[in-house]
């Protein structure tokens, strides 16, 4: 899965770059807005990585951007993401002399929602890189499943997501484009299921998807 994502990213960038080299410097249309739907892969960092270490491709994002002036734009992102990992036999000690040794599943389910502001460098071109800052929150559920026991907690948070990426149109005057982006997400969320309270959760994200551009 990870290899496929890397290869796809490389091919899309390569194709977009070749297209960008062929276009005229003043060609294309100035978009009014665009909507994106992307498949997300998350790489947990820090204490979040201690909870679930595996990268997770289970997620998507739906977003919209509205151009204010030139390349400046504002918009929103909403999504869904899950990170999960199965762990081998571990022993958990509970109250009243209970001890359980079992394989276990840990996962975090997130529903992020953010407003964003950003700048797109060449919105009229086939290849249009951008940077963006999302500000908002998440609803997260952290689950530890041991045998039939589902121990969980849920928590709302505040989050920040700086992102760099690019739109790659499928043709000079086409409305459809590919979107590739990499982001870093910091949240005020934490996990307190295991013995210690974790630090603030953070993660890296890779988004690959489609955009529909309106002019």
């Amino acid at each position: 899965m990870k290899k496929a994502a890397i290869i796809l990213t490389f091919l899309l960038f390569a194709w977009g770059s070749s297209q960008a080299q062929d276009i005229k410097p003043t060609g294309g249309f100035m978009p009014h807005s665009y909507y994106s739907f992307t498949w997300n892969t998350v790489f947990t960092l820090g204490d979040f990585n201690k909870w679930v270490g595996s990268p997770s491709p289970a997620g998507f994002n739906f977003g919209g951007r509205y151009f204010i002036e030139k390349g400046f734009n504002a918009g929103f992102n909403i999504g869904w993401q899950r990170v999960s990992q199965e762990y081998g036999y571990e022993t958990y000690y509970g109250p009243n002399g209970i001890a359980v040794t079992a394989t276990n599943f840990r996962f975090t389910w997130m529903v992020p929602f953010q407003i964003s502001a950003g700048y797109m460098f060449m919105p009229t071109k086939v290849f249009s890189p951008y940077f963006d800052l999302g500000v908002g929150g998440d609803y997260m559920e952290h689950h530890l499943i041991v045998q039939e026991y589902d121990i969980y907690e849920n928590r709302w948070d505040f989050s920040l997501t700086p992102e760099v990426g690019a739109l790659i149109k499928f043709g000079y005057y086409r409305s459809w484009a590919a979107l590739i982006a990499v982001n870093y997400k910091w949240t005020s969320n934490y996990i307190e299921i295991l013995n210690d309270k974790s630090g603030m959760l953070s993660m890296m994200g890779l988004r690959i998807g489609l955009c529909y551009i309106l002019n």
Partner: peptide
């Protein structure tokens, strides 16, 4: 796969 975990061998004790 989370359902499969529930079928795994589990050692449970209470003292």
């Amino acid at each position: 796969g989370v359902d499969r975990v529930q079928e795994d061998l589990v050692v449970y004790t209470q003292i």
